[in-house]
Simulated scan of single mutants.
Amino acid sequence: MTITLNHTIVPAVDNEAAARFLAAVLGLEYDGPHPVAKHFAPLRINDELSLDFMTVPDPTGHHLAFDVDPATFDTAVAYLRAHELPHGDGPGDHTNGRVAEQHPLGARGVYFADPSGNLYELISPA
């Protein structure tokens, strides 16, 4: 059997706000709370993975890295810039306003955080 990650829980101050934030940056649709487990705000990343945001009192941020195609990368960076959202070229420099043009895992990379302290990394092959 091939092993794939089905979902992961992402802690948030406000689960629905966190799901909407990442959906907006990545150009995805957020469909609302889970129909049965209403304490989760799932965001479908692709056919195999969802991030299930969950409101917790004192969220500890996670680091989540995504390989994305160049068009998705460009759209996300444009969104971050248009909405004046902090982003940067490294995990320690995720607010410097730059994009890594020589990312160690791909051609380009960008980092940004959500209000709950989750740090997102997008990696593009070109």
Score class of each variant (00 low, 15 high):
68 V>S: 03
73 F>M: 03
108 R>H: 12
105 L>M: 10
113 A>G: 01
117 G>F: 06
72 T>L: 05
80 L>P: 11
95 T>V: 13
111 Y>T: 00
116 S>Y: 04
66 F>C: 04
85 L>G: 12
49 L>V: 04
52 D>K: 04
105 L>V: 06
49 L>A: 06
89 D>C: 11
53 F>D: 03
56 V>G: 12
91 P>K: 07
96 N>Q: 09
50 S>D: 02
92 G>E: 13
103 H>P: 00
82 A>R: 15
72 T>A: 07
55 T>F: 14
106 G>M: 10
83 H>S: 13
81 R>I: 12
89 D>M: 07
109 G>V: 07
105 L>G: 07
89 D>L: 09
83 H>E: 15
65 A>H: 05
89 D>H: 09
93 D>E: 15
116 S>C: 06
69 D>Y: 08
61 G>Y: 14
111 Y>D: 01
54 M>H: 13
63 H>C: 09
75 T>E: 08
51 L>K: 01
53 F>L: 06
94 H>W: 13
79 Y>Q: 08
68 V>F: 04
87 H>N: 13
50 S>P: 02
111 Y>K: 02
71 A>K: 10
101 E>S: 04
99 V>M: 03
114 D>A: 02
59 P>V: 11
110 V>R: 05
48 E>T: 07
91 P>A: 07
115 P>C: 03
109 G>L: 07
89 D>S: 12
79 Y>C: 06
94 H>E: 14
61 G>I: 10
90 G>Y: 08
62 H>I: 10
102 Q>D: 14
113 A>W: 02
58 D>Q: 15
87 H>S: 14
63 H>S: 11
86 P>V: 08
98 R>D: 05
49 L>S: 03
48 E>R: 09
51 L>T: 00
108 R>A: 09
54 M>P: 10
111 Y>L: 02
108 R>C: 12
110 V>H: 04
77 V>Y: 01
100 A>C: 07
77 V>K: 01
46 N>L: 05
71 A>Q: 13
71 A>Y: 08
87 H>P: 11
48 E>H: 10
53 F>M: 06
75 T>V: 02
115 P>N: 05
110 V>G: 03
71 A>T: 08
103 H>S: 01
75 T>L: 04
60 T>W: 14
58 D>N: 15
58 D>R: 15
108 R>W: 12
117 G>K: 07
69 D>A: 10
102 Q>W: 05
62 H>R: 14
110 V>C: 05
108 R>Q: 11
76 A>H: 01
99 V>W: 00
107 A>K: 11
60 T>N: 15
91 P>R: 08
104 P>N: 08
62 H>C: 11
